[in-house]
Simulated assay, not measured.
Amino acid sequence: MIGLAASRALRDLFSPPFRAAFWKSLGLTALVLVGLWFAVEALFERVAAPWAAGWLPALPAWASDAERAAGWLAGLLLAIALAFLIGPVSAAIAGLFLDDVAEVVERECYPEAPPGRELPLAASLRLSAKFLGVIVLGNLLAFALLLVPVVNLVAFFAVNSYLLGREYFEFAAMRYRTEHDAKALRRRHRGTVLAGGAVVACFLAVPVVNLLTPLVAAALMVNLHQLVSRREGGLPAPPVERRIAAAGPRSD
């Protein structure tokens, strides 16, 4: 099941809709990071530099060189910080386009199934924030354990397999189910979801390729949700349709 879901996700990754979602998310990520660069640079020039100027003249003659070196060092640290933020920021922004990805997978691979429903804007924003938190946590964990061989690798894959599998599977399931039902389905198939999360974690571990992580994760988990639902007897009607059905036919 994992192999089938992964192969379908990789196949869809090169389709025009996926490329469009990738370039949109990457473009917005670049705009955010460039804006952040200028904002931090302005903060350094208007706050940090004037503050330092108050005590630098009291230093020896090399103070001006030290100030210049500090500026270069600040720029280097900022560049490293922005490189670290590429993955998390792209994950958060790509979260806004995941419904587009899910719709393509459902339409192309499962035409016989009822179409899912886009998440409300508030839920979509909340999921994007959660995706951001998941990626940040995984990267911080890897950084904290950088000097501990083997342990850092095991911890990185264990944590990210669980978190990525959980969040993206529940996203796919919530296109057809309530949040409570999506969580219950994920718990019933926790081993399968964890294995799917491990595949996603492999993408997260590769620089540059990790920019594709949100799209790969969404496509893989949409496929996995469809396959798991088939095993359980089929997909339910999306939540909106279930509420309409429960209300019964209207009487004039």
Rank of each mutant, 00 (worst) to 15 (best):
M1T: 09
A9N: 02
D12P: 06
F14W: 14
P16S: 06
P17C: 01
F18E: 09
R19S: 15
R19K: 12
A21K: 03
W23Q: 11
L26V: 14
L26E: 11
L28Y: 12
T29K: 07
L31S: 03
V32P: 00
L33S: 05
V40G: 06
A42Q: 13
A48C: 05
A48E: 06
W51T: 11
W55I: 05
L56F: 11
P57S: 04
L59C: 06
W62N: 14
D65E: 13
D65W: 06
R68S: 15
R68E: 15
A70H: 00
L73C: 05
A74Q: 07
L76T: 04
L77E: 10
I80Q: 15
I86M: 07
A91N: 15
A92Q: 06
I93M: 03
I93Y: 03
G95E: 10
L96Q: 11
A102M: 07
A102P: 02
E106W: 00
P114G: 07
P115G: 04
R117Y: 05
E118G: 14
L119R: 09
S124F: 00
S124G: 08
L127W: 05
S128E: 06
S128H: 03
A129V: 09
F131E: 10
L132G: 02
G133I: 03
G133Y: 08
V134A: 13
V136E: 13
V136W: 11
L137A: 13
G138S: 10
N139V: 03
A142S: 12
A142F: 04
A144D: 12
L146P: 00
L147G: 06
F156G: 03
F157A: 01
A158C: 04
V159L: 15
N160P: 04
L163C: 10
R166V: 01
F171C: 03
A172E: 07
A173Y: 04
M174W: 00
R175I: 00
T178K: 09
E179P: 07
R187V: 06
H189C: 03
R190C: 04
T192E: 15
L194H: 09
L194C: 02
G197V: 00
A198I: 01
A201H: 01
C202T: 13
C202I: 13
F203A: 14
L204A: 11
A205K: 08
A205L: 03
V208W: 14
N210E: 11
L211C: 02
P214A: 06
P214G: 10
A217R: 01
A219H: 02
V222D: 04
N223S: 08
L224G: 02
L224A: 04
L224D: 05
H225S: 10
H225F: 07
Q226R: 15
L227H: 08
V228C: 05
V228F: 02
R230A: 12
R231S: 04
E232Q: 15
G234N: 05
A237M: 10
A237Y: 09
I244D: 10
I244Q: 11
A246H: 04
A247H: 11
A247Y: 07
P249N: 08
P249G: 06
P249L: 08
R250E: 13
R250Q: 14
R250G: 14
R250C: 07
S251M: 15
